[in-house]
Amino acid sequence: MIAPLSIPSPDEQWRILVEIPVPWGVIPIHTYAICILIGMVLAVIITSRRLTKRGAEPGIVIDVALWAIVLGIIGARIYHVLTHPNDYFAGQEWWRAFAITEGGIAIYGSLIGGAVGVFIGCRITGLRFLSFADALAPGLLVAQACGRLGNWFNHELFGQPTDLPWGLEIESSNAAWPQGLAEGTLFHPTFLYEIVWNLIGVAVIVMLERKINLRWGKAFAIYLIWYGLGRSFFESIRVDPSEMFLGIRVNVWTSFAAIVLGIVLYLVQRRRHTGDEPSPYVPGREWKGPDAEVDSDEIESDSDSLDDGVEGENDPQGETAATSPSRTTS
């Protein structure tokens, strides 16, 4: 019997918003993909505003986000395939491991791949990796909350049976439906739990930043701890199949690793850096806005360097003074 406050699952027709005709058939645009896309856009906007307030060039987040998104998607697929090997290597066609349009990505894989992308993007733009990670932390939680909403549209990743009034309604024909359960059984809405947990995490990080110094990677450390704690619980009550290690789901182990990494990062950075972060850029790569004031001594120095360079062209023994841009754009 369905509880009066139970959460219904969306109709099947909402899984695909539109189908785009192409010469070889149609390309379905899934609601889940739209949720992820919205999350990416929100994360970019939030991160950009936070970076700009800290002295970064407006719009520079795009240079990093392009790398992070592409490698994040690749990492999400690789992680999913490696943690669900029976779905792809047990008598299945090998090419299905690359058929991402059939579904199958993992948040932890996207975090690993995205981190590699952020590292590359930061090296190109001159941003500090941990400074970017600090600015990204709240937006990342918002993006993950949007992605969990997509799980609701897909009728997937729900939790164990529950008698709570806010249980999630799932059709008994669902591939993850536990055998032997009666029709109308309700399940923990883990997608909703994680959405709420992530949004609370945003508030926690923002409030802590107003009270203590969370620069130098410490805001990102709080993110790792917060997300790891929540995910370790939500993952443990899910009923979908997953690889196990020592009787515990692999993603739970990964959550534990995130918590440990966050704790170590916070403690190390708190000891190494007690003051404010001078700039989100590495030394020598700082960005100077068009309204930045230039001292007269600096103008004279630049003029002298230019004169030295001209003389060096006429004098084989002279040394040409080189000037370097404040930031390299990708």
Rank of each mutant, 00 (worst) to 15 (best):
A175H: 11
K288Y: 15
I237N: 08
V204E: 06
W177G: 03
R96T: 11
L17G: 04
F220T: 01
T190G: 12
L214F: 09
I195N: 01
A182R: 09
S279F: 00
G228V: 01
L66G: 13
F256A: 09
P10A: 08
A68H: 00
G103V: 05
A106H: 02
Y79T: 08
P161Y: 10
R327V: 15
S110R: 00
T254R: 05
T101F: 13
G289K: 03
T190N: 08
S9L: 03
R54N: 00
F158N: 08
L17V: 14
R128V: 04
R327Q: 15
L149A: 11
F233N: 09
Q160T: 15
G159V: 01
E277A: 00
S296I: 15
I205E: 04
R54H: 00
M1C: 12
I62Q: 10
V310I: 14
I195Y: 05
Y79E: 09
F191E: 05
V70C: 12
A3N: 15
I69H: 02
L261M: 13
F132L: 15
H188V: 12
W95P: 04
P178K: 03
P241Q: 12
W67N: 11
E19V: 08
L42F: 09
P241E: 12
R249I: 01
P325N: 13
L261Y: 07
P290L: 05
P85F: 07
T162S: 12
P290K: 11
A145M: 04
L111M: 11
W253I: 03
L267D: 04
I200E: 07
V41A: 03
A33W: 11
D315K: 08
M40S: 02
V41W: 07
S236L: 07
L265A: 11
E313M: 14
G39A: 01
I62Y: 10
P161I: 10
T31V: 08
Y108F: 12
R215Q: 14
S324C: 10
W152M: 09
N154H: 06
E319V: 15
G126N: 05
A321F: 11
R271W: 12
G201T: 01
Q269G: 04
A90L: 11
I100A: 09
L181A: 06
T47C: 07
E235I: 04
V264L: 13
R271F: 10
R231Q: 06
E311D: 14
L246F: 13
G312Q: 08
N154T: 02
Q317F: 14
G167W: 06
G180M: 10
F245Y: 13
G312M: 03
I16F: 06
S326M: 13
F256S: 03
Q317K: 15
W24L: 13
I225G: 05
R272W: 03
H80I: 05
R128C: 03
L140F: 12
N251G: 07
V61F: 06
T162A: 12
I112G: 01
R327N: 15
Y88P: 02
S173I: 13
P241W: 07
D297R: 15
E293Y: 13
L168S: 09
T190L: 07
L140T: 11
D304K: 15
A106D: 08
G147C: 05
